[in-house]
Amino acid sequence: MTNTSDPATATAKEHTTATSLRLEGLCRRIGGRPILDGITLEVAAGECLALLGPSGCGKSTVLRVIAGLDPCDGGRIVLDGRDITEQKPARRRVAMVFQSYALYPHLSVERNLSLGMELRGVAPEQRERELAAVLELLQLSALRRRRPAELSGGQRQRVALARALLRKPQLMLLDEPMSNLDAQLREELRPQLRAILCGGRAPAIYVTHDQQEAMGIADRIAVLEDGRLQQCGTPQELYHHPANLFVAGFIGRPQINLLPRADGTVVGIRPEHLKAVSSGGLPVRVLNREWHGASQLLLLESEQGPLRWTCDGNQALGDGLRLDWERRHEHRFQQASGERC
């Protein structure tokens, strides 16, 4: 470790400056099979990055390697200028919210929160002060004597978050923290979580398989597939300029229409960018429709293949329906490599 900084200055720094995280070519193999294949990323102080991907793509492994729970088989992890790749998990100053929350089932809420501070040697008065503050912040004050089993899913998640915050981490990791909550609660909690994660001193990485959640919470999204980073950018960038077929298909609901062309390319056009025209365009036939209130989703058949079209809820449908789109909304990809042209 050439650039491990002197611990004293590191301690001084963490109270004054914000930190950032850099992953350089992170690799992880299990039994010779690559789980992570050269992940390179940067997360700035106060930024929340969502790691998005289908299940099994390796996104949770990224978190576990950063935290030091899984070994790193290649590459470097640089936190606040220190190379922490070989450091023990306990010394990394990283907090993690687990999908299962990992609350200690035999301890009350307040013991769950204060035990770590106690064992780290935080003075009792300061402990009580910080505990009260975080209980207040997350509206847990009334629940402080309850056991985890007596809490609802959302309450448990807030306790887990509170515990992570009390660690005063230099990096916050969240592994699908909302996947055990019902859809409505997830939506309600999103702004709250965003307010806590974004704008702090520490960077946060938020793993999810739900693109709406990623878009709702994160400043930037990194899309992962098969252990490889596909694209990293703001939600707008991913939506408007998907780097390849996978990202195009993964981001945006309803899913993008992909129309293969004879020249070995694929044209992608989002369902919401299709328009009905009176002449020209593509003749289509309606196969099915889902009414969504303000809009409706039509499943159509055309000579170029099936199409999805999100249209106005009042759109009149008929036999002579023809669809077209503006060229500026069109995405083009190489069929073979999947890369954007």
């Binding site: 935290a67 729970l69 306990a90 010394r91 770590g116 064992l119 515990r163």
Partner: peptide, 17 residues
């Protein structure tokens, strides 16, 4: 569940703790 111990590990608990 392994996360319980992992969580304690990240909180800085020693093996004995």
């Amino acid at each position: 569940p392994p996360e319980l111990e992992e969580s304690a590990l990240l909180e800085g608990f020693s093996l004995w703790q």
